[in-house]
Design a binder for these strands. Structure first.
Lengths: 148, 148
DNA sequence: TTAAGTGCAAAATCTTTGCAAATGT
DNA sequence: ACATTTGCAAAGATTTTGCACTTAA
């Protein structure tokens, strides 16, 4: 089962003219196994000492430039990353879905929903896109806090 | 004209059981004269060497705790602050208006608008509140970039 | 082979903490 | 007078940069 995924990752990297390296594969693996967006510090914990901190920063920023992942800020303002939908590329990012931030564990989830309201900005302000962030308690934290 | 404002600031501080000090008055003055939210680094530039960096951080966090200002993250994830509406206090923050982030100057503006859509989260996720961020080009950057 | 990617060291930011001195009430 | 607030110094945390070594193609 892991091999299948690895093949997809290799394709993805090739498609973006990126060399297939271990750090990049590991990051893709970790992100694809995870429901929530991930930050560099979390990523660093997960890979142990396998990959240098600086490399992780660089992998993330390369992926973001190529449109492989997109950046989302969590409630603390820490940058977290999640894999983009397949319609993203280095020209355009289509990550206009709702993000959910859990105020307990601080994790960020991308929600499927896509109802976008029209925002009326004051004259002179040009709105190019809109992001919506729902804040609350995620599924996992609610389970843990049942009965308290 | 400045004295009038200073009186209001003094009232505001007293109301919140805070001592009336120069750093606090200066911060309130700067924020009230500004349309956009302000970060600690910007604040530091504006006061010159008058106020210690650490004092600014502490003034901002005290004000936030008391509900005098609220924190907004800009596009880079830097914390910026704007004065709250008068309905805010240390128990509750009512800053559920739309924020506008300029992708050129990176400034954050609070928009008056308040149409809040219902967000349908997946089962298990409890949405407590929703923030909306419009991203685009602000009035001032559009003026500067006219004709380019 | 060779351009791209990695790892290490060191720098640059940004933010917090501890404590003594200064200040508002 | 006394609790609060400030300023300084120093520590922490996070992110970036420079450069030599390594590796994928």
């Amino acid at each position: 089962m892991e091999n299948l995924a690895v093949d997809e990752f290799v394709d993805l990297l090739r498609k973006n003219k990126l060399k297939v390296t271990n750090p990049r594969l590991q990051v893709l693996q970790i992100m694809s196994e995870r429901e929530a967006a991930i930050s560099q510090p979390e990523l660093e914990k997960m890979v142990g000492g396998d990959i240098d901190r600086v490399t992780l920063y660089r992998v993330l920023s390369t992926f973001e430039e190529k449109g492989i992942i997109h950046k989302i800020l969590d409630l603390q303002g820490t940058a977290t990353y999640a894999v983009c939908s397949s319609s993203c590329n280095d020209r355009e990012h289509h990550d206009e879905h709702v993000h959910f931030s859990c105020e307990i564990c601080n994790k960020v989830y991308c929600l499927p929903e896509s109802i976008y309201p029209n925002i009326a900005a004051p004259k002179g302000f040009l709105v190019k896109h809109v992001t919506i962030n729902a804040i609350g308690i995620c599924r996992y934290c609610q389970m843990e806090h049942k009965g308290e």
